[in-house]
Amino acid sequence: MPTVASNERSTGETPEILAGRYRLERMLGAGGMGVVWRARDLLHEQYGDPEPYVALKMLSEQFSESPDASALLYSEFALTRQLRHPNVLHPYTFEVDAAHRQAFITMELMHGITLDKLLCEKPSGLTWHELKAIAVPLLDALAYIHGRGVLHGDLKPSNVMLSGEEVRLFDFGLGLAEKGPCKRLPHLDRKRLKAWTPGYAAPELLEGATLSAAADVYSVACLLYELASGNHPFRRLPSTQARDARLERQLNAPRNLPRRCWPALRAALAFDPRQRDISAAQLRDALGGGSFWW
């Protein structure tokens, strides 16, 4: 999902209108796998909808040329379609423009600021009140999806949006299902393609291990530490250094986090997944919020 902002339409082969209905207006962002556009739904506009806008996600040119590209995009749609949580972005439709051989997902057009932009505005970190208002609903969303056997796979500041007073988790392009019907869906071969974001990927993922709930917990813990201090806990060091136990031992509690919350966050930041013995729900509760969506 969006990581690089742009105000201009692409001058490449991206069509102006998809499926005879969605007019692409401007690119909202481009990540490693996907490109997201602001699009106007011409059908809704025809029937007088005053806000006929959606976000439209398609795979980047690099991935769209792959023979299984459409299947991967559909997998992301199917994975998130089953989720019903106020802090998880819900998709609208999966469609294919046959003329342009372009698959895409439509979803709610969010208005707000992603957490990476918020960190730029708050270089010293958030106050505890501000942090808790983001951390509790985000961790509740993560606990919810884990409870339904879904793993996110790419938790980082640019994949969480603050929209008014709402927190929204999005971009499940690297996600997968541990159980249920979606477990049979195709997913990205992570051994062939190193798609993890190094600064937030759990050390075991960088070493070739499979995605797990514990890996998601590590990623969200890095994000929360950064929100609390303004600094990444391990300064986005390369994976070979990030596995150095000395760095882990030198980790100090962020100044904006209450002392009582530090042991839980510290456990979530353990390099060794066997020592990362805390769930998203337990971390949520430690930061002061009980479940509100079960």
Rank of each mutant, 00 (worst) to 15 (best):
S158T: 13
L119H: 11
H146I: 00
Q102C: 13
E165I: 05
S158N: 09
T106Q: 03
K117R: 15
I145H: 02
P157Y: 07
H111W: 14
L162N: 01
N159L: 01
L139V: 11
G153K: 04
N159G: 04
A141Q: 07
F104R: 02
A143T: 10
E121M: 15
R101F: 11
E130I: 09
H152F: 00
A103R: 02
S163E: 02
S163K: 00
A99W: 01
P137Q: 07
I105K: 01
L151A: 00
G147E: 01
T127L: 12
P137F: 09
W128T: 09
L115V: 11
W128K: 05
H100K: 09
L118N: 12
V136H: 01
G112M: 09
L139G: 05
L142M: 05
M110C: 12
S163I: 00
G147Q: 08
M161L: 13
M110N: 05
L115P: 06
A143G: 07
L142I: 02
I145P: 01
A99C: 07
P157K: 03
L119I: 14
T114W: 12
P157V: 05
P137W: 04
K122V: 15
G112D: 11
I145M: 10
E130W: 04
L126N: 10
G164R: 10
M107Q: 11
P123M: 13
C120E: 15
N159Q: 03
G149D: 04
P123I: 14
T106I: 06
R148K: 12
L131E: 06
M107D: 05
W128N: 10
N159W: 11
G153L: 06
I134N: 07
R101T: 06
L115N: 08
M161D: 04
V160E: 09
G112V: 14
A133N: 09
I113R: 14
L139M: 08
D154L: 02
L109Y: 13
I113M: 15
K132T: 12
L126G: 09
E165V: 07
V160S: 10
H146Y: 03
S124F: 12
L126D: 04
A133S: 14
M161P: 05
A133F: 07
I134G: 10
F104H: 01
T114C: 12
N159V: 04
A103K: 03
S124G: 14
G125R: 13
I105E: 03
M110A: 09
K122I: 14
F104K: 02
V136A: 07
S124L: 14
N159K: 04
G125V: 12
S124N: 14
E121S: 15
K117S: 14
I105Q: 01
A135K: 00
P157F: 06
